[in-house]
Design a binder for these strands. Structure first.
Lengths: 346, 346
DNA sequence: ATACAAGTCGGAAGCGTTTCCGGAAGTCTT
DNA sequence: AAGACTTCCGGAAACGCTTCCGACTTGTAT
């Protein structure tokens, strides 16, 4: 005798166990107002019928769904950087009894906010409590999300521009601190001719470049920067930059690549020309991606703790949900110099 | 005048627009039984109030939630292989108007099925319609999921053992075909002394090894296999295997690594000893991971189309949901020989 | 004028839960 | 024995939506 559409409901359990609806519900939710005997009888019936409560129906009553949505913007594939952020989100979500929806968003940076076509899921009110925005984002999208009045936390370093945006919760890593430490480390190893290779159209690369220039300036040294000539991929850019580096007079003793990919391109091109790292020239990267340990010798770089970024996003989002009125949080996580084998002592 | 807890409901819209509940609902769901004038009035009210229907309440009525759950088993981090599968799932889901929940499961292969502690989300009936199982899986988990009576599709190549399992929907890539093509390609380039480096405790590595042996056997050649001596990581294993390869008398002219990671380890160790690939020895991998193109020269390997695996999982799951009684599907996707630069012509 | 169909629309019932109110029975106090 | 608490429990109401039934209006045919 089950209610029409298949699976047993709480009513079936109540009837079978000869108790009221409320009693079954109390048993399910661990309420203490049920005697041991009755509880056992109900539990037995539940097992007998294979009953499992319907999560959707349950959620109608709560004001929250205990689900958050991870949105990856403008990425063709989930690269390992963002994959680790997602992993951090999931880790933290599990501890906090939350679930994670995954969605991808693609849009143009020029589209007006209300003309952006959002992934269908963002139209579903009540399905999730808040958003975590990762991937590459532009102000128009953030603005659109703000209009939705859904609590959200954004990964800050990949936001291209903050022009005209109201404040919001965000988590970033400290690119400046990491690059400052890195360049100082190079100085401490005796390097005085240090070049930077980077494409400063990326906001995070600009931050790193700025840090590099400042440290050199403080040390009374001359910066030398090489930027992306066109639409080369990052590895190709590194390879291309190699000859530019070697053309310099005098030749730099160390090269700061804007990230590990560029460093890898440089390394490859250097090796092809028979120039050994670090014997002939030192090389450092940023991010500590997989490729850093795959290089030979392994790359000295700056570690970005992606998992922690994800975890922090999740924690802040949950706080925001519990305290809608709290001041906006902008958490900045430290980065970590990882000394491996690509810097020589001069 | 909104219903108590904040956001406007369909009742607020009805009152404001001076129509009945049913009319608002019909407008929302595009039913044709509403006159143009009324429809406009209701739509205007909806916009005015900023009303958006509650997805949870809506879902109670449907028998399905249009959400599927992607479960990643026993993986510490989302590596790029599985990240791409997830991406494929998401791509396909978007087309099919489905949403994707992300969950991680960790368990021991020895635990009895009903003692496995499942991620909380799998207890939530009605929240999602079906599962996609990826990551490394063992029969106990599959068995447990089967008991849950939730439709699911599994990624087949990483299932360690099928012992005692009833059949189920699965998607795999054809490791045999790919490795056969690869070894035949080596033969066509004149290689006759071909070694295999692999850890055959992995089921997918066993498949590749088997394919390798069969092709050599057909060609009347002697296989030479080197297996993982202990608990080395795959890259370390490749490095370790290098000296074993070089010890062989006569020395192989080509090495088939069980995957790109092992190939990379081999390549590194070879290069350190001044042995050039492919001039002195040829080397091939499997999977076509990122590292394949990062090597120098880029690695000749076999491409596994992870995105397509994800898409196929999604499609089959949806078919299963629509046709619960259909016969079990075991889809096998082809793999693709990718010739790059690590094989010489003898 | 009557009958009938088509086009609209209101609102009750229902989806599967939780929550709350109130009642019954038992226990303790005086 | 009466009253006051406790403990336990049943079921109505509510959550926000969809669906369905019936009713009203209008137009057309008879």
């Amino acid at each position: 005798m089950r209610s029409s559409h298949g699976r047993p409901t709480i009513r079936d359990v109540a009837r079978e166990a000869q108790v009221g609806l409320g009693t079954v519900s109390r048993v399910l939710n661990g309420g203490k107002e049920v005697s041991g005997a009755t509880r056992e009888r109900v539990l037995a019936t539940i097992r007998g019928l294979g009953f499992r409560p319907n999560a959707q129906a349950r959620r109608i009553h709560r004001q929250y769904s205990e689900i958050i949505c991870f949105v990856l913007s403008n990425r063709d594939f989930l690269n390992s950087f963002h994959a680790r952020i997602l992993q951090g989100v999931e880790d933290c979500a599990r501890l906090l009894k939350q679930h994670v929806l995954f969605a991808a968003a693609n849009y143009e940076s020029k589209t007006a906010p209300h003309h952006i076509i959002l992934p269908a899921i963002l139209g579903e009110r009540g399905l999730f409590d808040g958003l975590i925005l990762a991937g590459t984002n532009y102000p128009n999208f953030i603005h659109r999300i703000q209009n939705l009045k859904i609590p959200f936390v954004a990964f800050g370093n990949n936001i291209v521009d903050f022009k005209g945006l109201k404040r919001f919760d965000q988590v970033s890593y400290d690119g400046t601190q990491g690059e400052v430490e890195m360049v100082r480390y190079l100085l401490s190893r005796g390097h005085r001719l240090i070049a930077f290779v980077g494409d400063t159209t990326y906001p995070w690369a600009r931050v790193r470049h700025e840090a590099y220039r400042n440290v050199l300036w403080e040390a009374g040294l001359e910066p030398a920067s090489i930027t992306n000539p066109g639409s080369l991929s990052l590895v190709e850019f590194g390879e291309w930059a190699c000859s530019r580096i070697l053309d310099c007079q005098p030749r730099p003793t160390a090269v700061v690549a804007m990230n590990d990919e560029v460093a890898h391109g440089l390394w490859r091109a250097l090796r092809r020309r028979g120039i050994q790292v670090p014997r002939d020239i030192s090389l450092v990267g940023f991010d500590d991606r997989d490729v850093a340990t795959l290089m030979d010798p392994p790359l000295t770089t700056v570690r970005v703790k992606q998992m922690e970024i994800g975890q922090a996003c999740m924690r802040i989002l949950l706080e925001r949900l519990h305290h809608p009125e709290m001041a906006f949080v902008e958490q900045v996580l430290s980065t970590e110099l990882v000394v491996r084998g690509t810097v020589s002592q001069l």
